[in-house]
Simulated scan of single mutants.
Amino acid sequence: MASIYDFEAETLDGRPAPLSAYKGQVVLIVNTASKCGFTRQYEGLEALHRRYRDRGLVVLGFPCNQFGQQEPGDAAEIASFCALTYDVDFPMMRKIDVNGPKAHPLYAYLKKAKKGVLGTEAVKWNFTKFLVDRDGQVVGRFAPTVEPKALEGAIEALL
Rank of each mutant, 00 (worst) to 15 (best):
F62E: 01
P63C: 10
C64P: 15
C64Q: 12
C64F: 15
N65Y: 05
N65V: 04
Q66R: 10
F67N: 07
F67P: 01
G68V: 13
G68E: 09
G68W: 13
G68N: 11
A75W: 03
A76D: 15
E77H: 11
A79E: 15
A79W: 05
A79Y: 01
A79L: 14
S80T: 09
F81H: 09
F81I: 10
F81Y: 14
A83Q: 13
L84R: 14
L84P: 03
D87G: 14
D87Q: 15
V88M: 06
P91I: 02
P91K: 12
P91G: 14
M93I: 02
K95Y: 04
K95I: 04
K95A: 00
K95H: 01
K95V: 01
D97P: 04
D97E: 15
V98D: 04
N99S: 10
G100C: 11
P101M: 03
P101D: 03
K102P: 02
A103Q: 05
H104V: 01
H104A: 01
H104W: 00
P105S: 08
L106S: 00
L106H: 02
A108G: 10
A108F: 01
A108N: 07
Y109I: 07
L110P: 02
K111T: 15
K112D: 08
K112Q: 13
A113C: 05
K114E: 01
K115G: 11
K115R: 15
G116M: 13
G116P: 14
V117K: 05
L118K: 11
G119R: 06
G119M: 04
G119K: 08
T120N: 15
E121L: 03
W125I: 11
W125M: 08
N126F: 09
F127Q: 12
K129I: 10
K129V: 09
K129P: 09
F130N: 11
F130M: 07
F130E: 02
F130W: 09
L131E: 13
V132S: 14
D133V: 10
R134T: 05
D135S: 07
Q137T: 13
V139Q: 01
G140L: 03
R141M: 04
F142V: 13
A143S: 14
P144F: 12
P144W: 08
V146G: 10
V146Q: 13
E147W: 03
K149F: 04
K149R: 14
A150P: 11
L151P: 07
A154K: 14
E156C: 10
E156P: 02
A157S: 14
